[in-house]
């Protein structure tokens, strides 16, 4: 019980993810805008039910509520315009947690309107948006900072739990994926990446077939992926191993992005790695970068 109380006191003291929560909000908002803009030409196909794709869900279940999907399908452009405005508000930190809640709900509804196009990245993005509802992710990158400098322990408490949730979720994903791989013969026998590199759907480079035939590459990449997923959830919590595991994970996601064309998906997984780096380091780096940028603009005659 004493440990429990101590832990609560620790969570109340300071927000350990202060900078990175704000940075994640910024990245997530930009990612949502990018997704929306790229899908704009395909709205009829994906969401309206007027193209060849037969909509999957007729009823949308949103936690305690359910309603007919047609209500949104018939007004999809109004819905998307409203959604874009809310993402922009969230991006600039206007409306704070209320905006975060609405953006999450709207994104979730959009996912349910067209579940056919979702992948693991969208699934993780949904959870990040859900967790961010509870956090103070408005310390940086906002139009207007709160005037009161008073440290709010409740805010710290929720922000710390949010950061922790994102870290735990990333570890859970790796661990569950590793558990499934143990059960799979091709992963066990060290040939799984041969198959993944030969799937036409994910043929991201002209080298896929070539490297997929190399037994050294296939064995090392198969076991490498497996070991990273298995060991990351444990070793990343130890200071001595943290950076090694983060570097391995980033390399893994970069290679998947390039070889399998899963850009947004892998980008999000790379961004989330930053939650394991201390707030102090992020703030120091950010402030020195800010100083460099300001100095550049002050010194450069073009901007004088």
């Amino acid at each position: 019980m004493k440990q429990f109380n101590l832990y609560i006191a620790n969570l109340l003291q300071e927000s350990r993810y202060n900078f990175y929560l704000s940075f994640t909000r910024l990245v997530v908002c930009l990612l949502l805008i990018k997704k929306l803009l790229f899908q704009l030409s395909f709205v009829n196909l994906l969401y309206s039910g007027k193209s060849f794709l037969i909509p999957g869900n007729n009823i949308i279940n949103e936690f305690m509520f359910s309603f007919k999907a047609d209500i949104i399908r018939y007004n999809i452009y109004i819905y998307l315009s409203f959604y874009l405005v809310l993402i922009l508000l969230y991006l600039f930190g206007i409306g704070r947690n209320i905006t975060a809640l609405i953006v999450f709900l709207m994104y979730d509804i959009l996912q349910k309107l067209c579940p056919q196009i979702l992948n693991g990245g969208d699934n993780l993005l949904r959870f990040i948006l859900l967790y961010l509802i509870f956090a103070n992710s408005f310390s940086y990158f906002v139009i207007e900072k709160r005037k009161s400098k008073k440290v709010n322990s409740i805010t710290n408490f929720f922000s710390n739990l949010t950061g922790l949730s994102i870290c735990i979720h990333l570890c859970l994903i790796y661990f569950i994926s590793a558990i499934h791989k143990i059960h799979s013969d091709v992963w066990f026998n060290g040939v799984a990446t041969y198959y993944t590199l030969n799937i036409e759907r994910f043929n991201g480079s002209p080298f896929n077939h070539f490297v997929g035939k190399n037994y050294v590459f296939v064995t090392l990449s198969t076991y490498g992926t497996w070991f990273i997923e298995l060991l990351y959830p444990i070793l990343v919590w130890y200071r001595n191993w943290r950076y090694t595991m983060i570097i391995f994970a980033i390399l893994l996601h970069l290679s998947i992005a390039i070889l399998m064309m899963l850009y947004d998906f892998q980008f999000l997984f790379i961004v989330v790695q930053g939650f394991f780096i201390s707030n102090k380091i992020w703030v120091t780096k950010y402030e020195s970068l800010l100083l460099k940028v300001r100095t550049y603009f002050l010194i450069n005659p073009l901007f004088k």
Binding site: N61, F63, G120, N123, F127, L172, I173, I176, S177, H180, K181, H183, S184, D185, V186, W187, A192, Y195, T196, N198, I199, E200, R201
Partner: peptide
Amino acid sequence: QTNFFQRWAFFAPPPTFN
């Protein structure tokens, strides 16, 4: 699964066909 749907098998097993 209705409220917190998630599946993290990631190519385990990978498809063995196109």
